[in-house]
Amino acid sequence: MIYLDYAATTPMRDESIQAYSEVAKKIFGNPSSLHDHGTSAKNVLEGCREELAKLIAVPKSGVFFTGGGSDANILAIQSLLLGNKHKGKHLITTKVEHSSVKNLFKKLEDEGYTITYLNVTSSGEVNLKELEQSITEETVLASIHHVNSEIGVIQPIHEIGKILKKHDILFHSDCVQSFGKIPIEIKEANLDSISISSHKIYGPKGVGAAYINPMVKWSSVFPNTSHEFGFRPGTVDVPGIAAFVIAAQLIYNEMTDEQQRLQTLRTHLIEEIGHLHLPIEIINRASLHLPTILGLLIEGIEGQYSMLECNRHGVAISTGSACQVGQQEPSKTMIAIGKTPDKAKQFIRLSFGKYTTIEDIDFLLKIMKQIINNFRL
């Protein structure tokens, strides 16, 4: 099967599997234990923390390993809010955040926080003027993702960071989709906190990390927690973390060349859709975008049908974020950029990765043309 759903998850690369296996067999101790097995595990853990910190150019004391990107989002935001209760109870986010952030903010709203949900432009970008106008004396934190998981638009986090810094507002960003694909300039963007994930970069599932600026105050969500310096409870998955960091190092080494290769594939697909005169609307053709994600609307055909037909022909695509699939709702990003509910239901997402070839793209085009022609018979 041709796999074009890398934004949902990626296959583990061989080097990551090997690292997991070696550490699991040889360094199996609990890093909190005081005997030699525990010390060996702690040394590996702290070595991984240092290496990951180097990749994202931050102090290692601000890096905390988590159970994934969603876990990192939830813990980072809650920890920052608990540490800054005195600053106010107004929060800012967008209408197109990942479900982990969206659902957390709904919970916080029930707990007495006031939330401003920012609109986005027709290309999916945050409106900076609206962001600045939404700030109040009670605003304590804003959570705005780096890259949209459905259409790949890159948010102007440097400009967002400048605005928030000027008003002394904490800035958290979900960087799960951007990590390993484009640089995350944490200091330059005035980011106080980010979340990243292993399984989006060819590492194992169930592992991720949060970064919180060591100069920023935060409090543990779970009092008396001893693991990860009080940030997260539970025995640390040292083999998983080792495999994650190996995958991170490798994807960073390959980043520039790989993104250029994937941009070539993306451009080829878009050009061929035009050459074939297929009734397909390209989402985010002009805006700053991640080469690995492309959103499409196939005229008159629901995305669910297109996805199932592609699957029947041996091509795996999606109808949006894997964390909200099955809810039978139109894409929240499509609605946010101004599409009608009926139009939004036509949405499909293609996402490319390490093993995607030009032949895969050409086969996809053949199947899409066939699906459209058969649907219209």
Rank of each mutant, 00 (worst) to 15 (best):
G47L: 13
S351T: 03
A210L: 04
A322G: 04
V221C: 15
P204Q: 13
S226D: 06
V238Y: 11
L269P: 02
K162A: 09
K162I: 08
I201N: 00
I282F: 01
I241Y: 05
T267A: 15
K165G: 01
F105Y: 13
E22V: 11
F179H: 00
F363A: 09
F171A: 08
E51S: 07
D360E: 06
R49M: 11
G295E: 03
T94V: 05
L108A: 11
S197Y: 01
V58D: 00
R349M: 06
L131N: 01
D110C: 07
V96A: 01
S318W: 01
K95R: 14
E272M: 14
T116I: 05
T267W: 09
L296Y: 04
A189C: 07
E46R: 00
I337K: 02
I367Q: 06
K181S: 05
V153A: 12
T340M: 11
A24F: 12
V96D: 00
G152T: 06
K85R: 15
K366I: 10
K60M: 10
V44G: 07
K366P: 02
T267H: 15
A248L: 07
G326Y: 04
V221Y: 09
I270Y: 10
F105Q: 00
S143D: 12
R266F: 07
S32K: 14
P59Y: 01
E272I: 08
D360V: 10
V63H: 02
L364M: 14
I186E: 03
S351N: 05
L265G: 09
V245Y: 08
I241H: 05
I144G: 05
P239N: 04
L170D: 00
I298E: 00
E258D: 06
T357F: 06
T356Q: 06
Y305F: 15
T267I: 15
Q263V: 03
Q18R: 09
A242I: 14
H167R: 15
T225N: 10
Q78V: 11
S173E: 04
G88F: 09
H313S: 11
C48L: 10
A142R: 00
S70H: 13
I135H: 02
H98C: 14
K54C: 12
T333N: 02
K25S: 12
I241A: 13
T9D: 11
E228Q: 15
S123L: 08
S331M: 01
E130K: 09
L265H: 13
H98P: 07
Y355K: 14
N103V: 07
S173D: 03
A242P: 08
I282G: 00
R312C: 11
T235A: 13
N84T: 00
Y202Q: 02
V126G: 02
Y113P: 01
G208R: 09
L108M: 07
G47C: 13
E254C: 06
V238S: 10
E51T: 01
L294I: 15
I182S: 05
C48N: 10
A189G: 03
A209R: 05
A72R: 06
I361N: 09
R266A: 13
K26D: 11
F347T: 01
Q78R: 14
D14L: 12
I194C: 12
T94W: 03
A53N: 09
T93Q: 08
I251G: 06
R285V: 07
S134T: 06
T340K: 12
L80G: 07
M334V: 03
P291S: 11
G62H: 02
E188S: 14
S220D: 07
E97C: 13
R376E: 14
